[in-house]
C-alpha cells in the first residue's frame, strides 16, 4: 500500500505553516527556534517526497545539507541567546526592546 505523494506534500505545507505562524505569534525565543526547525523539516519532507516521486537522489542529498545547516544555525542561535539572557530572568523576545524607531 502506498500513500500518494500529495498527502506528504500537504503535511509538509501544514508543518511549514504551523512553524511560520508560530514564529510570528510566540514570544519565547526558544519556541521561536523550534518553529524555525519545524519549517526547515517541512522543507526536508518536501525534498524527500519529491525525490521519491521524481525517482531522483538529488532531493535526498539536499536534506543532508539542510540538516547540517540547521544544526550550525542552532548552535549560533543558542550561543546568542545565552549571551543575551545571562543577566535576565526569562527568554522572552519582548524583553529585547532597546532598538526601535
Amino acid at each position: 500500500m502506498s500513500v500518494h505523494a500529495s498527502w506528504y506534500l500537504t503535511l509538509a505545507a501544514l508543518l511549514f505553516t504551523i512553524g511560520a505562524v508560530g514564529l510570528l505569534v510566540r514570544r519565547n525565543v526558544l519556541v521561536m527556534f523550534m518553529c524555525v526547525e519545524l519549517m526547515l523539516n517541512a522543507a526536508n519532507l518536501t525534498f524527500v517526497t519529491f525525490a521519491r516521486a521524481l525517482d531522483d537522489i538529488g532531493g535526498q542529498v539536499a536534506v543532508f545539507f539542510v540538516l547540517v545547516v540547521a544544526a550550525a544555525e542552532v548552535v549560533v542561535g543558542l550561543g546568542i541567546i545565552v549571551a543575551i539572557f545571562r543577566r535576565k530572568v526569562g527568554a522572552t523576545a519582548d524583553d529585547a526592546h532597546m532598538l526601535k524607531g
Binding site: 506534500l9 509538509a12 511549514f16 512553524g19 511560520a20 514564529l23 525565543v29 521561536m32 527556534f33 524555525v36 519549517m39 526547515l40 517541512a42 522543507a43 526536508n44 518536501t46 525534498f47 517526497t49 519529491f50 516521486a53 521524481l54 538529488g58 532531493g59 539536499a62 539542510v66 545547516v69 544555525e73 549560533v76 542561535g77 546568542i80 541567546i81 549571551a83 543575551i84 523576545a93 529585547a96 526592546h97 532597546m98 532598538l99
Partner: peptide
C-alpha cells in the same frame, strides 16, 4: 543593544532561510 541586534538578526535570518529552503524544495519538485 549589540546582543539584541544579534538576536533580531538571527531570528529573522533563520526565518528567511527556512522560507528560502522551502522555495528550493518546491522548485525542485
Amino acid at each position: 543593544a549589540s546582543g539584541e541586534a544579534a538576536m533580531k538578526y538571527f531570528v529573522l535570518g533563520a526565518f528567511s532561510s527556512a522560507i528560502f529552503v522551502y522555495g528550493i524544495a518546491l522548485t525542485y519538485g
